[in-house]
Design a protein around this nucleic acid. Structure first.
Lengths: 127, 127
DNA sequence: GGTTGACCTGGAGTGCACTCCAGCTCCTAC
DNA sequence: GTAGGAGCTGGAGTGCACTCCAGGTCAACC
């Protein structure tokens, strides 16, 4: 299967402009072109794009994604280095989750506090 | 207790420049000044700053924090609205955690894949 | 053969959240 | 009384990740 840029955008969740931008900065390889000079994305291209969106969602900066992309380019010899990157990134995602969780606790506390106020207020009215 | 801007920065984890920036954009009230015209933060100021850093950590945009700050300014009458904001924000933080968790699963999968490759490679060597 | 719609390029513009700077004042310590 | 360090102001600059635009090409349909 091949996909037009609009289809690739829809399936990856990136915008058309972002696809071209990613190509420009070397985050994705230039895809094939059809007879009219238009981009024609392959299934492989698509799965790389989808993987990139995962990395992006987890907050990996573009410069790091680019480094990963370049390593990938150099084949199996760089597999260890790439695994290392994912390893480290996984640790940072876990930390980020823990951080969010702890802020969530603060939010819970604050919300409970507001509920306390409401409760007191209602009691004051009905008392 | 009162704190100089440097102490407030250290205790809140924000930079001195960020403290002044937050004041400029109306995210924090202008603190008291000492005899020399320097900012002098109170414990209340500090706890608000710390709470702001929690909201920031959870990805609340500044414009929303500012809205919250302004509501706070209008006293108890806006407590319901503020609670509502925290409520909605809590939901978005939970969603964010779930999203990160699902991306983490993809990372796990990828890392396992690399381990698979290594394993195969080692077997190939020793066989 | 003319219009429409998707896509093309290079480059400029945007929004966010800071961060830095020049030139100044003020207090403290020597 | 002066040198040093912290802090002050208004405003400019930065980094990131897009997003938009003008002006053009190309294929398809009427």
């Amino acid at each position: 299967m091949t996909y037009s840029i609009a289809q690739a955008a829809e399936r990856s969740g990136l915008s058309i402009d972002t696809l071209r931008y990613y190509e420009r900065i070397g985050l994705v390889d230039p895809p094939a072109r059809d007879s009219g000079g238009r981009r024609s994305y392959s299934d492989d291209d698509l799965s790389w794009l989808v993987f990139l969106t995962r990395l992006r969602t987890t907050g990996m900066p573009i410069r790091m994604m680019r480094e990963y992309a370049q390593l990938r380019h150099h084949g199996a010899a760089t597999a260890g280095r790439r695994k290392q990157m994912l390893f480290e990134h996984r640790a940072s995602v876990r930390e980020r989750i823990a951080e969010l969780q702890s802020c969530l606790d603060v939010l819970e506390y604050k919300i409970a506090h507001y509920e306390q106020i409401e409760h007191t207020f209602v009691e004051g009215i009905t008392a």
